[in-house]
């Protein structure tokens, strides 16, 4: 179960504002996190708390394909992103690095900045603890929960290959 305070954004948040190209000379997650959202929301890195949840509009993560974008968000402490829709490559990259993301247009529209929200990945429910409303998104099948829990595709395969056991 994931729980956190909501930071809300609009439509078409692209990978260039998530992590500006000028910082792509590193793939260190902490360094990336230090510049996350800098061009869209300079206050982000100061107000983000571990466990916080980003809620956004449609086409989140559009633009050039960079794994740095979900990495920067995850390293900032964000526990989950809920959006109306995600750009295709961002969707894949986010899950591959173990950042849970959920498509749920209703929740994305109704949930507000600062609300407290709980997310259950196993059955796909999103509960707005502030308003009391519950939403249903697609649930994550067990393999995907394992993948997220492992911390992404590389770790997941490592565990499957028995290296970490």
């Amino acid at each position: 179960m994931i729980e956190g305070k909501v930071i809300k954004y609009g439509n078409n948040v692209d990978t260039d504002v998530i992590i500006p190209a000028r910082y792509l000379n590193t793939s260190n997650p902490e360094e990336l996190a230090a510049h996350c959202m800098e061009d869209l929301d300079p206050s982000f890195k100061d107000r983000v708390q571990p466990g916080d949840i980003i809620v956004a509009g449609s086409n989140f993560g559009c633009g050039s394909s960079r794994e740095h974008a979900p990495m920067a968000i995850k390293a900032s402490g964000i526990s989950c992103i809920i959006a109306e829709t995600f750009a295709r490559i961002f969707y894949r990259n986010a899950l591959n690095i173990g950042l849970p993301i959920m498509e749920c247009p209703e929740a994305a529209q109704e949930i507000r900045e600062g609300d407290r929200v709980a997310v259950d990945l196993a059955n796909g429910t999103i509960t707005n603890l502030t308003s009391g409303r519950t939403y249903k998104a697609a649930s994550f099948p067990p393999f995907m929960q394992e993948l997220i829990q492992a911390g992404g595709l590389v770790e997941y395969v490592k565990e499957k290959m028995g290296v970490n056991r």
Binding site: I89, Y91, R92, L95, N96, L147, V154, Y156, V157, M161
Partner: peptide
């Protein structure tokens, strides 16, 4: 088409996830 990490996991496990 997929990314290099997906290819790596595919080569290792013979599986890939899809939506």
């Amino acid at each position: 088409g997929v990314g290099s990490t997906d290819m790596a996991a595919g080569m290792a496990t013979g599986q890939a996830w899809f939506k």
